[in-house]
Amino acid sequence: MANKKDMNIWKRLISIRGMGQVLTVTVGLIALCIIFAFINPSFYSSRNIGNLLRQIAPILIIGIGQGYVLITGNIDLSIGSVVGMSAMISATLMTKGMNPWAAVCITVAASLAIGIVNGILVSNCKLPPFIATLGTMTVARGIAQIVNHNYNTDAIGNAAQGFRDFFYYGSTAGIYNTIWIAIVLFLIFNFLLSRTRTGRYIYAVGSNIEAAKLSGVNTNATVLTVYIVSALCASVVGLITSATAGMGAMDAGTMYEMYAVAAAVIGGISTLGGQGILLGTVVGASIWGVLQNGLQFAGAPVAIRNIVIGTIVIVSVLLDVVIRVNRPKRKTESAGN
């Protein structure tokens, strides 16, 4: 303990598990920012920075949820559909004249129900997470379509202006509320993951679920927790989406499960479970945002952006695997026979 204090900040930073990777990715992020600034100097206009951060915020939020799930060694593919479902339920209720905050409560409750189903299917029923959440992904999208009889909603109207300001248009202390929401959620969930018992159990389950179970960890509850967190995050993003558009769109959140994986994985969270820190997701989401924003500025069409981001996800996972394989003293017992 004593010599820990003697170490300089840099060393202490590096000594945090998973921080090395985050720093590496941060270098990549900085490089990207420099490149886009060269291509288009107005990339750094305060207006664009604000927009950029507001673009990053939802991806960070779903990235937090997906990060939780990935650290337990599972995956949540239902995120995008839950975003759409959340957007549609909230907007539909508001167009029907319901108090916006009551609508928010119902929306969150409905989303959490999906998370609970995911959690139970994966933990208690031992379904492969890929299949379980693929199923709920389809169900949630179906719910998004059915709540307003297979139509996008009308505008949610002036009564809901407070709601729209809270989730998107308003700002506090000169920073958009959306960004505040992301910051607050990040701080809460980062604390939960890095400092609490629940967080430690999440890592333990991802590292070795059998050992965790035999250590008295309620592994089912832990898996349930991460899926609930994931659904909660997706729900918040759904609310942001309906606040942004001022209406509910049935296809809201399409591909978001992919973006969430991207944010988490680029940020160094291992898809094999047990490794990675949430700070990486901030960097991962930022890289996603900077690419989207920068490529948009550079005039690249959506298709190209998707190709680039997909490629980057693959490359970052590849790098992760290569680093892990080449690291000495790991258990790399290739069959010698």
Binding site: R200, Y203, N208
Partner: peptide, 21 residues
């Protein structure tokens, strides 16, 4: 390796795991 340890976690985290309460 299979049932006793979370090998990716540190020794500290392994020892503390059942005692976090």
């Amino acid at each position: 390796r299979k049932d006793g340890l979370c090998v990716k976690l540190s020794v500290r985290e392994n020892i503390a795991l059942p005692n976090l309460d």
